[in-house]
Simulated assay, not measured.
Amino acid sequence: MSTHPTTARPMDGTARAAELTARTAAGAAELTRRTGTAPCLATVLVGEDPASVTYVRMKVRRCELNGIRSRQVVLPAGTTTDRLVEVVSGLSADPEVHGILLQHPVGAHIDERAAFEAIAPGKDVDGVTMHSFAAMGFGLPGFVSCTPGGIMRLLDAYGVDPAGRHAVVVGRSAILGRPAGMLLLARDATVTYCHSRTVDLPARVAEADIVVAAVGRPELIRGEWIKPGAVVVDAGYNPGNVGDVDFAGAAARASLITPVPGGVGPMTVAVLLEQTVRAAAVQLGEDPAALGL
């Protein structure tokens, strides 16, 4: 790593996601040709939260554009845990559904973990179940959480080898911070998790060769905390198109940085689509590798 201040090169998630999605679309088309069945992603939305509605609509549209069928299940905001588990279990048992996405967060009255665990491991294309987390932790085959998976794809695309580097993950959510650290550890990084109880967060971040910001607080990570030459991955998205990192300040010191928007977000959706086609291939008796996936 350089020891001198630098101007960071943006990590273009939009372009890298387009490349991955093109391969996924080709794989979906070939799978459909071979089996006569198109991959199918079921989306489950509880309530009418505007952001969630927008996210689901966007994911459905991306499916349609890339040869993936979508099945949308919209439930009222007052849906109980038992009812949601029943719906998700039904999709898990349906052979016409190959992947399941439960849009989160669900209502505070719902046991979200119970709902996630109703997703069959082979259809957990969003990587949210305990089975998927264990697979990530042990380095076994399975589906990765989509945002951490997208982060790893970005690092690879820009030639960033985590091996031997100190990665600091700021955030410990079950679907972002924790699995991101697991995936980095599997690639031989030395990983430090930071969170709301971390003492002297600036000092911890300043030690990092790779910073993953995943805490959901706008511009929490200040530019002056960044080690010169570090790689900065901002997985946050806050109102006003603001990430968790002070972009201008960090870009003056980092070697590579993800913009918000246009960095991690597009990669998340691209990984979701790819994992859906991979899941469909396995369920339909085809080898994902033979489809270029």
Rank of each mutant, 00 (worst) to 15 (best):
Gly236Trp: 07
Ala186Arg: 15
Ser173Ala: 08
Gly159Arg: 09
Asp200Tyr: 09
Pro218Val: 12
Val231Ala: 03
Pro218Gly: 12
Arg172Ser: 03
Arg197Leu: 08
Pro179Thr: 09
Gly177Phe: 03
Ala235Lys: 04
Val168Met: 06
Ser173Gln: 00
Leu220Phe: 02
Val212Glu: 08
Ala174Lys: 12
Leu185Lys: 13
Gly139Thr: 11
Pro218Arg: 13
Ser196Leu: 02
Val242Ala: 10
Val168Ser: 10
Lys227Asn: 12
Gly243Val: 04
Leu183Pro: 12
Pro202Phe: 10
Gly236Gln: 03
Asp161Gln: 14
Ser173Glu: 09
Phe247Tyr: 15
Pro162Ser: 03
Leu185Cys: 13
Arg187Thr: 05
Met152Arg: 09
Gly216Met: 02
Gly177Lys: 04
Glu219Thr: 14
Asp161Lys: 14
Gly149Glu: 00
Thr198Asn: 05
Gly223Met: 06
Val233Phe: 13
Ile210Ser: 00
Thr190Lys: 08
Arg178Cys: 05
Ala186Val: 02
Gly139Gln: 10
Tyr193Lys: 04
Leu220Ser: 07
Tyr158Thr: 11
Leu201His: 00
Gly240Arg: 01
Arg172Met: 09
Asn238Cys: 10
Ala189Val: 07
Asp246Cys: 09
Asp246Tyr: 06
Asp246Ala: 12
Ile151Glu: 05
Phe247Val: 00
Asp161Phe: 12
Ile226Cys: 07
Pro228Tyr: 03
Pro239His: 07
Val212Gly: 10
Phe143Glu: 02
Arg165Leu: 14
Ala163Thr: 14
Asn241Arg: 09
Ile151Cys: 11
Thr198Ala: 05
Ser145Lys: 00
Arg187Asn: 08
Gly177Ile: 02
Asn238Pro: 02
Ala214Pro: 09
Trp225Val: 12
Val168Asn: 05
Val242Met: 00
Pro179Ile: 11
Thr198Ile: 07
Tyr237Thr: 08
Phe247Ile: 00
Gly229Glu: 00
Ala157Cys: 05
Asp156Phe: 10
Val205Trp: 04
Leu184Cys: 10
Gly249Phe: 06
Val199Ile: 14
Asp234Trp: 06
Val160Pro: 09
His166Glu: 06
Ala230Met: 02
Phe143His: 13
Trp225Thr: 13
Asp234Cys: 04
Ala206Cys: 11
Val205Lys: 11
Ala180Phe: 01
Ala186Phe: 10
Cys146Phe: 08
Leu155Trp: 04
Arg178Trp: 09
Ala186Gly: 15
Ala230Leu: 01
Tyr158Gly: 03
Arg204Lys: 15
Tyr193Asp: 07
Ile175Gly: 01
Gly159Ser: 07
Ser196Gly: 11
Val191Gln: 00
Glu224Arg: 13
Arg178Ser: 04
Ala163Met: 10
Val144Pro: 05
Val199His: 15
Leu220Glu: 11
Pro239Phe: 04
Gly150His: 06
Pro179Arg: 05
Ala186His: 14
Arg178Ile: 08
Ser145Gln: 06
Thr190Pro: 11
Gly149Lys: 01
Leu176Cys: 14
Arg187Asp: 11
Thr190Asp: 07
His166Asn: 08
Gly164Asn: 13
Val170Leu: 15
Leu220Asp: 07
Pro148Tyr: 02
Gly149Val: 00
